[in-house]
Amino acid sequence: MLPFTIEKATSIQGAIAAASSGRRFIAGGTTLIDLMREEVERPEHLVDINTLPLSDIRIEGSDLVIGALARMADVAAHPDVQRLHPLVAESLIEGASPQLRNMASIGGNLLQRARCPYFRMLDASCNKRSPGSGCAAINGLNAGHAIFGTSNHCVATHPSDIAVVLVALEATMQVRGPRGERSFPVEELFRLPGDTPHLEHTLLPGELILTVRVPGSPYSRRARYLKVRDRASYEFALVSAAAALDVGGGVIRQARLAVGGVGTRPWRLGAVEKALIGKTPDRKVFETAARLAIEGARPLSGNHYKLELLPRTIVRALEMTGEAA
């Protein structure tokens, strides 16, 4: 690990001021320390933000408001989250390991970096780590990589589970920076790689995530997260789906669907959602709609299987939703 300094933030304003002059925030550290040890990340100055008052988890009306420093395990175990927003709890429990969930913060989870093996491998080409060096994954081992949102410069997936759920549920986030506070949809946090894959999010210099707000909705409790992976637990998704249905009078009134493991950012499937609305929630309808999911997909040499696995995962997630209703 390269040398660095670390200081403790004593106020939100102080943390923002420190970050504005080039220091990096550290919260749970489970991604950052790992990557610093590999010298993929090389910050010279860290600001430890763990003691800032941003760990609150609360219900406001029907909305769930999660402090950026709340730990994954605490959000997942919160009785109100389990009762009113079970999809949030379910996706958190499907991520990482119990130890890591005790450490990792919600803000850090959203900002976690790619799990592409070449990103971690200093002697491999990687435009995300070393802009302009090329992408070793495009013609390399790419079974785990994206089929949506890719470019000729990067094909890495976004690895977060909770991010997929937050995008499906149209959650927003509140951030504060040197020029004040702003709020925007979580979906807008994530950039497509394009020709600048080293730029992964839309936060401005010095901006700190304060909270994530998940709106209450008719389908908050009729929603499921299905994660398909190489191991039964403690593994990143090959394909995952967050599905939510609002069913009334025997027909689907509204649908929400976002998928993980397939996009360079959490991927909302508006066309599939539209195809579900007004229909009877049965397997045939789910299958017909799910076929639309792979429109525009660009598979790589090693991940053609996702074209089949994705619609199947969506159908099963939608069926699980019905069971939960």
């Binding site: 749970g28 550290g29 489970t30 790992d34 763990n50 130890q99 890591l100 005790n102 450490m103």
Partner: peptide, 19 residues
């Protein structure tokens, strides 16, 4: 490397003692 940190299980390799 699992230990209990303030009674919670964590992996001690991915956290800095200084924190």
């Amino acid at each position: 490397c699992t230990v209990l940190l303030n009674d919670r299980r964590v992996v001690s390799c991915l956290t800095l003692a200084a924190m």
